[in-house]
Design a protein around this nucleic acid. Sequence first.
DNA 1: TTGTAGGCGTTATCAC
DNA 2: GTGATAACGCCTACAA
Lengths: 336, 336
Amino acid sequence: MVTIKDVAKAAGVSSSTVSRTINNSPSISSKTKEKVIKEIKRLNFSPNSMAKGLINNKSYTVTLLVDVDDEKSFQNPFFYEIMHGIERLVYKKEFSLIVANLNTTMKKQSVLEWLVKAKRTEGVILPSSILNSKLVDELKKDGVPFVSIGEPTNLKESVSWVDIDNKKGTEMATYSLLDKGYENIAFLGLDKTKLFSKRRYDGYMNAILESKQEVINVECGNSKDDGYHNMKKLLNGPVIPDAVICADNIISIGVIRAIQEAGLSIPEDIGIISFDNQQIAELSYPTITTVNVDVYELGYQSAKLLFELIENPQTRYQGLLISTKIEERESTIKNK
Amino acid sequence: MVTIKDVAKAAGVSSSTVSRTINNSPSISSKTKEKVIKEIKRLNFSPNSMAKGLINNKSYTVTLLVDVDDEKSFQNPFFYEIMHGIERLVYKKEFSLIVANLNTTMKKQSVLEWLVKAKRTEGVILPSSILNSKLVDELKKDGVPFVSIGEPTNLKESVSWVDIDNKKGTEMATYSLLDKGYENIAFLGLDKTKLFSKRRYDGYMNAILESKQEVINVECGNSKDDGYHNMKKLLNGPVIPDAVICADNIISIGVIRAIQEAGLSIPEDIGIISFDNQQIAELSYPTITTVNVDVYELGYQSAKLLFELIENPQTRYQGLLISTKIEERESTIKNK
DNA sequence: TTGTAGGCGTTATCAC
DNA sequence: GTGATAACGCCTACAA
């Protein structure tokens, strides 16, 4: 293993000079600097991250905490993109990204304790679904900066978080449907136990009331069967909508099925807008217009907030909303 | 920060005694050991991982390398489960799991170099799609153990890898269809550029030839449109199959569409078996019978192989195949 | 069985 | 601008 001493010897300088070169110290002549850099390259030297960390008491490491056993924790398709966004910034900062599972069984302690107390990590990003007051207390007590992905609920403390602007998303979706000429727009899939679902409903409500239209609201779960059965009911009901906004992407699969079985056509008779799950939206017949959710950006911004907290612990906690965009596909008509 | 010295002072022993206690040294009286452990707990002490790493020249860290920009690298839905399998073993070994992207831009060097040379990681797990001879050379030169997820292709060197037993999977699927009474079984979606696709075809071939049936093979890409158009062609062709095995899960969505448009019923007229993508298989109407692929196990076994290499660098390279299981859903009939 | 001392590779603090 | 030296927290001979 080639160390700073080897480089120093080879370049005929002291190890401090090599250290200064590595760390871009201003007080060093460009001549020796050049010489040292040359030797560093020749010897293929990289500073040992642990020795450096020991001195500075830093691990140069950030943790993405998940709960694999909790379905709400991170949806499979979203996780990869979120991680990608995080990774981009983390490595730009010359940190490493650790991924850990909240409920991993370790000998004596919890993973989180293990990561935090042994100085293995300097900050944590975690989904709001696993964030409760107890966890917040622990993290704050240990002085580890953290950022929640998703706006937390039922929390007394204030924390930093990043979320999709769900409300604005459905608001835009509703207006977009109205613009196209749809007149009876239903919202299907409100689940009051879920914040994102409520937010999406709020956006829909806003736009509907603002436009003096009638609210058609169907509360239900988020499986394809929920979508199917509730759409069926709606089609037999007093007011048949000519457009449906689905709170959650899976629901829309069942909704489409119900509409097609009733002999109605999409998007002519009934238009559909759902929330982003690109793969499903594009696999369906017809493909589904969605409120596009930029989860890469979600990840990137969460990392950005985290680094602000790491670099300056005095930073105030803040909430950040990522804007959405409507991606037109076959389930909505261009002009009615 | 509480160090080994604080514990030593509190317990009235030397720091070496504390160190010995932590590391379960045999030469220590159970009495002092007890005393020390008590203080460790009271003071809430955890050994600093970097100081320990510096001594042993170990990082206690394993890296999962991906290429987020390469679609073949890891399918979204698979990644999470694979990672879960890896994570399980990694933390059991009291290591951390780093996730890094091959093409992350760092100032001077590649992430991999950065991770390896600065002693940030002790082993690497990576998808076969990004593994080429150049990368193998680099990894071997640096002496980092690594395991490929997926059987590598076009590699002169021998390496350790884990893969799904694709061949056996389609073989079982074919026999299962024959058992149910299907007689003209087609294989749709052979892509000769992909090893897993070829393996799946081989399994189908084996079973068909063994059973003295006729081979119906359609080569095509793996989009839903490929599935749709090629199934349509098949339905207009001389021999209409009464069962289809799809090489890839997305294809089956198009295949189903084509069959339904032709007014035929699934599974009565035509049965379908595809490969695992649980979400898609269950969202479809009808739900799709799949060859179930245990990607958690894939991840777990890759980590196991990696640790064998880390703990004993003399370990021989080996390839490991994970068996599959057929998950019956609506797209195949019970008895024809 | 326990304690002392030296060192892992780096950086910060002094001198020069 | 540069070099010696002492840390950082832990482990491991070696000594007792």
